[in-house]
Design a protein around this nucleic acid. Structure first.
Lengths: 206, 206
DNA sequence: GTAGTCATGTAAACTGTTACATGATTAT
DNA sequence: ATAATCATGTAACAGTTTACATGACTAC
């Protein structure tokens, strides 16, 4: 169960409420794992019952109650064990490639619209991921600053570079999808010069 | 629900039993969508109840019964509608990137083993996908040959190129993951020349 | 005969999505 | 006052995995 370990991983940086955790995982930041609050709240309860997190109630204002969760020693052990283990690959499931496998059934113009929409989405993901990667490289995100407080200063650069590289990886995947989709557009509509850059040889010949 | 449409997509090439469909989706071929027989059999029943597939019993040997499913006109309409629609991106969930986000917590040697294992898996996927892509480009797979029987010969080349490009896309994604993982290895163990090729400038200087 | 493949299913457990539900606090 | 955000949950449904279960056919 990856969400459990993703939650532990964030809580290891600092104790947090379910609400705050939801914000990390609600795909806002271009996070590598997404989940909704309706998944997170019950799971935090289960994790508390398992003894891998503990919970402190903090009152805000007059009545509003926040539950601040933190990782227990046993939770830390579980997290380190998960991070140290090679997990078997899960079955691949790519909705767009599945759809593209049937693009020969429909009008190329319709397929082109779907691809252009997809390209926009992936370009957005690439931009967001790269932006977050740069912030991490500059040790300029709130969570990373918290994390580094418990680490020797000599390690800070290396840790920041490693975290940044994960989001660079997310950006690289989005780039790869964009490149594939552009090539697919060219295959679908070889004569439409507006869809994508021409092959260099052809463009040079003009 | 993508599996439903993936099944329709395969059945559109030719009528098939649940068993045969399972073989396509059991991740054997490096298929773009994976599913197990325990998912496929009940779903085929539901699809029949919906009227998007119909079923013919065929006896093999003396008793062994096969249920051969085929797409109904209403199923074909549903499939074309799905293929023609841009679907919203689903939340991203990358177990390895999530794990890599915490690699600074463990020994680099342990992380390196996990990455090397991952690289092997992705290289295997890339090889399989490329091999399947080449077979498709050569119109040399049983299913594609069936599919082309219902299509004008003038379109055969284009259809084959489109199908092949989807698997080339799958290979490109695997390549991107391998490239990322090699770079991650270099970040983790910058002095270990065995993990990955040296940057060209450095290698040339020897 | 016996091992491998063909062929079809069910059941339980787990994971994820969407909708419903409620109330407090803060800024305008 | 009222809208946005803070804060926590539940319920129903949809989708996936793993294990259980059965029996026929084929090649050795």
């Amino acid at each position: 169960m990856s969400l459990k370990h993703a939650l532990l991983g964030v809580l290891a940086a600092r104790p947090m409420s379910g609400y705050e955790l939801s914000q990390f995982f609600d795909s806002s930041t271009g996070w590598v794992w997404s989940a909704t609050h309706s998944q997170i709240y019950p799971l935090l309860g289960k994790m508390q019952a398992e003894g891998i997190v503990e919970c402190e109630n903090v009152i805000r204002g007059i009545k509003l109650n926040r539950k601040i969760y933190s990782v227990t020693p046993s939770g830390m052990a579980e997290l380190l064990d998960w991070v140290s283990t090679a997990h078997p690959p899960s079955g691949s499931r790519d909705p767009l490639l599945t759809q593209a496998l049937l693009f020969d059934m429909i009008e190329p113009e319709v397929a082109a619209l779907i691809l252009q929409n997809y390209i926009s989405e992936q370009e957005y993901i690439a931009r967001e991921s790269r932006s977050h990667s740069e912030k991490l490289a500059a040790k300029n995100t709130p969570l990373l600053r918290e994390r580094l407080k418990n680490r020797p200063p000599a390690d800070h650069d290396r840790i920041a570079r490693l975290k940044a590289h994960v989001f660079e990886g997310q950006a690289m995947m989005a780039d790869a999808r964009v490149n594939w989709a552009r090539a697919e557009l060219n295959l679908l509509m070889p004569n439409d010069t507006n869809n994508a850059p021409l092959p260099t040889a052809l463009a040079a010949g003009r």
